[in-house]
């Protein structure tokens, strides 16, 4: 192998992997190190998972030189992509892999949370299963701690197992400074300024749940992670009211000719 590499090109570049990660639709993948790929230990068990395993591995590591027809070539190509994905799931939970994915996260390569109250917080790719070919990739927002479907159908078709169920949680254990501040900010449905009763009752119930959690955490002396100023539990209901008044006041001042203010109050 080494002979092949050194004789084919002195300034060797990872031809196949370069092509793969720069292909449209593969933006979620980072480049797996040569060293990682060539250490058989890291590939344990994958030979039974991937058809034409050895050829696929040769292709990924740019040492493929089998003379075969197009159909065979396409089959091996497909296997190579599958193999890359499966190794990727293992690689991104290594120190090197986490660092590479962190860089992509910082650039929001995985998109931004569509939830309005998350203010475009960057997402992380994740799988709902570690079993290949069972669930497509989803995107995790660390701010609202929920998962979303990728916007593009190209991304939505990627196997979730190529990212796995753990990576997006491990990254915040390894880099705790990355944990975003949590926010109680939320949407409350209204009709002509009135809260909708059923929805408002649910909001109150949820807010109580949140306060219970904060009390639990406080008792255990665990940081709740909520933004400063939102940390007072007792003040929550007041906060909600203030917010309402603030919103309504804004509307009021614009919609109102100044002279008529008296008639309202």
């Amino acid at each position: 192998m080494d002979d092949y590499v050194s004789e084919s090109d002195s300034d060797y570049t990872s031809y196949w992997r370069d092509w793969f990660i720069s292909s449209r639709g593969n933006e979620y993948f980072c480049e797996i190190d040569e060293d990682y790929l060539t250490d058989r230990f890291n590939l344990t068990g994958l030979n039974t998972e991937v058809q034409y395993y050895q050829y696929a591995l040769d292709l990924v590591t740019d040492v493929f030189d089998l003379d075969c027809d197009d159909e065979m070539r396409e089959t091996i190509e497909k296997s190579a992509r599958h193999l890359y994905g499966l190794v990727h799931a293992r690689y991104i939970v290594t120190t090197r892999g986490l660092a590479k994915m962190l860089e992509k996260y910082k650039k929001a390569d995985f998109g931004k949370c569509p939830r309005v109250m998350c203010h475009s917080h960057p997402l992380l790719p994740m799988g709902l299963s570690d079993v290949p070919s069972s669930k497509p990739v989803k995107l995790y927002c660390a701010r609202c701690e929920d998962i979303y479907n990728p916007k593009s159908s190209r991304h939505a078709a990627i196997d979730g197992a190529y990212f796995g169920t753990s990576f997006h949680n491990i990254i915040f254990q390894v880099y705790p400074a990355l944990i975003p501040a949590k926010s109680a900010e939320r949407y409350v449905p209204r009709v002509y300024g009135f809260k909708v009763h059923a929805a408002a009752a649910l909001v109150r119930w949820q807010n109580n749940k949140r306060d219970d959690m904060r009390r639990r955490l406080r008792k255990m002396e665990v940081e709740s992670g909520f933004k400063d100023g939102e940390d007072s539990i007792e003040g929550d209901d007041d906060d909600d009211l203030d917010e309402d008044e603030g919103l309504a006041l804004g509307e009021y001042s614009v919609a109102q000719p100044a002279g008529e203010a008296g008639t309202i109050a």
Partner: peptide, 14 residues
């Protein structure tokens, strides 16, 4: 929940 990176937002979807 007791982990620093533990879940804090479940109430939002409860």
């Amino acid at each position: 929940e007791m982990a620093r990176s533990g879940p804090r937002m479940k109430w939002l979807r409860d």
